[in-house]
């Protein structure tokens, strides 16, 4: 139940997936909103603080998630050969874009060598700083890669819907129900 099998996802992978999805969309909306706040808005400093804190937690969770993904079995892909290839490439691109968004965001706030306070609980140290024009370049990468991630995530959700309603695959159900991982296929 906790672990993945060839048939389906275990609880840990399922939780990683949906909590990440919720957090990623939430951070995107928060980021979109907060960058339009005026200097005198009460949220002008507070919203980025929350965005940075959650972003760092998501980054750490994503490292753990990728570790889990690599040491655990991956359920078999469904669909024809082309669809399976597209799914494989799409998933790698989702992970790559997610990492790009996370790392570029981290590099904005740490560009001068100052760490990022995560809700005041601990500081994520600046590991890479002082690159030429780091904050501005990382900011541009952060913005465009976040938009690309949202578009790809929409495609990802659309593909899941096609698997579920058109082909009647277990693709979407097994990302919800860990019991499917216990079934033989």
């Amino acid at each position: 139940m906790w672990r993945n099998t060839q048939s389906g996802w275990g609880i840990i992978s399922i939780l990683f997936h949906w909590l990440s999805a919720l957090t990623i969309v939430g951070l995107f909306v928060l980021g979109w909103w907060m960058t339009d706040l005026g200097y005198y808005d009460a949220w002008y400093n507070q919203a980025p603080w929350v965005h940075r804190s959650i972003g760092i937690l998501l980054m750490l969770a994503t490292f753990a998630r990728l570790g889990w993904r690599l040491i655990q079995p991956t359920p078999h892909a469904e669909g024809n050969r082309l669809e399976r290839l597209a799914a494989h490439v799409g998933h790698i691109a989702l992970y790559a874009l997610l990492l790009l968004v996370l790392v570029s965001g981290y590099l904005i706030s740490t560009a001068n060598g100052r760490g990022i306070s995560v809700f005041g609980w601990f500081d994520m140290p600046a590991l890479l700083h002082g690159l030429p024009n780091q904050a501005s370049l990382a900011g541009d990468v952060h913005w465009y890669s976040a938009i690309a991630l949202m578009l790809l995530a929409a495609g990802h959700a659309g593909a899941a819907c096609i698997h579920h309603w058109r082909y009647r695959h277990t693709t979407l159900r097994r990302m919800v129900n860990p019991k499917i991982s216990q079934q033989r296929h």
């Binding site: 100052r114 030429p132 024009n133 501005s136 900011g139």
Partner: peptide, 24 residues
């Protein structure tokens, strides 16, 4: 202009943006 430093990376980025110096 991009070499601006005010000891706060996000403020530097804001100063360099089109709101102020438009360094790009």
């Amino acid at each position: 202009v991009n070499s601006l430093n005010t000891n706060h990376a996000e403020r530097d980025r804001h100063f360099l943006s089109s709101d102020f110096l438009n360094a790009s």
